[in-house]
């Protein structure tokens, strides 16, 4: 089989629109006069037609197979034997196995997130930790910082802050 002539056949079959009518006519004339070249052209044409026919059918069969497996979950065929079909079905099909993987993954992320965030909610107060009460108070804990002497605070003596239970405890 002539490899150089194969290039010309491929040019004719795949990029024939770029050839002029004159070039095409010359090519076909050359083929007609040589039995081997004629055979080579016919074979390539058959290969092109056969592959196209097969690929079109395999595409349809991929969706038929997907539908079949949905309806017959207990008789699922092995995907690995159908590389062509697998390419097409992989975009459409999410097998039950993969769904469980996704659910497990999301659950792991949520659980891990909970354990990471949880310590941030715990307040340390002189070695003892307690959970923040949902009292809606904003700002940082310095408001309840017992180390701050009342005289340092910018407030009036009669301000209830001085009579706050927590500060009294700290003074003791």
């Amino acid at each position: 089989m002539d490899m150089d002539f194969q290039d010309r056949i491929d040019e004719y079959l795949l990029r024939g629109d770029r050839m002029s009518d004159e070039e095409k006519k010359k090519f076909l004339c050359e083929v007609e006069q040589d039995e081997e070249k004629k055979e080579q052209l016919e074979l390539t044409q058959h290969v092109k037609m056969a592959i196209a026919s097969r690929e079109e059918k395999l595409k349809v069969m991929a969706s038929l197979q997907w539908q079949y497996e949905l309806e017959h979950e207990d008789t699922q065929m092995c995907e690995c034997a159908m590389p062509m079909m697998e390419r097409v079905t992989s975009e459409k099909k999410l097998s039950s196995g993969k769904i469980w993987w996704w659910i497990s993954g999301v659950a792991v992320v949520l659980i891990a997130g909970f354990f990471i965030v949880r310590p941030m909610l715990v307040m340390d107060y002189e070695g003892a930790s307690f959970e923040r009460q949902p009292d809606g108070v904003r700002g940082d804990d310095d408001i309840f910082d017992a180390g701050t002497a009342p005289s340092e605070m910018d407030s009036v003596a009669s301000d209830t802050v001085f009579t706050d239970t927590l500060i009294e405890m700290n003074d003791e």
Binding site: H46, V47, K48, A50, S53, R54, E55
Partner: peptide, 28 residues
């Protein structure tokens, strides 16, 4: 008949040949 023979042979081709010929002649 030759088209049918070629179609049958294509179904039996090695995965590498199938890949190359499909990319070249079908996907162009």
């Amino acid at each position: 008949v030759m088209l049918e023979i070629v179609a049958d042979l294509i179904s039996q081709m090695s995965p590498r040949c199938s890949e190359i010929l499909t990319k070249f002649y079908y996907e162009e």
